[in-house]
Deep mutational scan, measured.
Amino acid sequence: MGFKLLSKLLVYLTASIMAIASPLAFSVDSSGEYPTVSEIPVGEVRLYQIADGVWSHIATQSFDGAVYPSNGLIVRDGDELLLIDTAWGAKNTAALLAEIEKQIGLPVTRAVSTHFHDDRVGGVDVLRAAGVATYASPSTRRLAEVEGNEIPTHSLEGLSSSGDAVRFGPVELFYPGAAHSTDNLIVYVPSASVLYGGCAIYELSRTSAGNVADADLAEWPTSIERIQQHYPEAQFVIPGHGLPGGLDLLKHTTNVVKAHTNRSVVE
């Protein structure tokens, strides 16, 4: 069995187990497998329904001669939608809004960016022009300005110390501490036991640490421990890039980060 097929099978099995364990909360999309990078042309966006009122959005972007996937989250909030992270750029984010209108038909009224990198804030200006209120932590807003990236308009308070959590509509926002970046936030959907790890969490097929220019490698494993301790009931975990899975993604990420750190020390 090929690795790609095995990865998709694991996603399907995880979703099936969740649907059985929580039949009222989960209505997993039966329309197909989780979209992969090879299936999404740059400039297009796919939506994948995880649970009743919960979707991931998947886009792709060219970077350094390669094409990478990027995940975000959409959560229903009454007759409105909360968006977590842009679709990595203005063109993708405009396509995301169009796809949401086509498939869901509810307005996106608020959006949260989970850290300051372009795959999370690139497209904020498109959201703002569409009347979406954009939010991020003060740290993310400051770092985005320093980096020359787009800056969300509103500040999220109460997320300055490791372990801080605040309720934001249908989700809980959690600051686990520094990891992929010093400002990275985690998003949890309690009604569906869905954990969105953003770039602080890796997919299972990833074996290298990737972009760690703004990471705190020493603190990252401790931050992941905080996530595990705060959300032990999480059933569906979405990484910032690639295929979702279960809580095993947290341990896998820790292993990859520690291996990278150990290699760096040896070198």
Rank of each mutant, 00 (worst) to 15 (best):
M1W: 04
G2L: 12
L5K: 05
L5T: 05
L6C: 09
V11Y: 10
V11M: 13
Y12D: 13
Y12W: 14
I17C: 05
I17D: 05
M18P: 05
M18V: 07
P23N: 09
P23S: 09
L24F: 08
A25F: 07
S27T: 10
D29W: 09
G32V: 09
G32F: 12
Y34H: 14
Y34R: 12
Y34N: 06
P35V: 12
T36S: 07
V37H: 06
S38L: 14
G43Y: 15
E44I: 07
V45K: 02
R46C: 08
Y48A: 12
I50V: 10
I50E: 03
I50W: 14
D52G: 10
W55N: 02
H57S: 14
A59S: 08
T60V: 09
F63P: 08
D64Q: 13
G65Q: 08
G65F: 07
V67I: 09
S70D: 02
S70P: 03
N71K: 02
N71Y: 02
G72N: 01
G72M: 01
G72A: 01
L73K: 02
L73V: 08
I74E: 03
R76V: 08
D77H: 11
G78T: 14
L83N: 00
I84F: 14
D85K: 00
T86C: 06
A87T: 01
A87K: 00
A90W: 13
A90P: 10
K91M: 13
N92E: 05
A94L: 12
A94G: 12
A95F: 15
A95E: 12
L97K: 00
L97G: 01
A98Y: 15
G105A: 15
T109I: 15
R110C: 04
A111R: 03
S113Q: 05
H115T: 00
H117C: 00
H117M: 00
D118R: 10
V121C: 06
A129K: 08
A129P: 03
A130N: 15
G131P: 04
G131L: 11
A133C: 09
A136K: 03
A136C: 14
P138R: 10
T140G: 03
E147R: 12
G148C: 05
I151D: 02
E157H: 13
E157C: 15
E157Q: 13
G158M: 12
L159Q: 00
S161R: 14
G163F: 07
D164Q: 09
A165D: 10
A165F: 15
V166Y: 13
V166S: 08
R167D: 07
R167I: 13
F168W: 08
G169L: 03
G169V: 03
E172N: 08
L173Q: 00
G177Q: 01
A178F: 07
A179R: 02
A179K: 02
T182Y: 15
D183R: 00
N184E: 01
L185T: 04
I186R: 01
V187A: 09
V189P: 00
S193V: 07
G197M: 01
I201K: 00
Y202K: 13
Y202P: 03
Y202I: 06
L204A: 07
S205M: 08
S205G: 10
A209P: 12
A209W: 10
G210K: 06
A213P: 10
D214Q: 14
D214E: 10
D214I: 09
L217R: 10
P221S: 10
T222I: 10
I224V: 13
R226A: 11
I227V: 11
Q228D: 07
H230T: 08
A234N: 03
Q235W: 05
G242C: 03
P244Y: 11
G245V: 02
D248R: 07
L249C: 01
K251W: 08
K251Q: 15
T253Q: 01
A259E: 09
N262T: 07
N262I: 06
V265F: 13
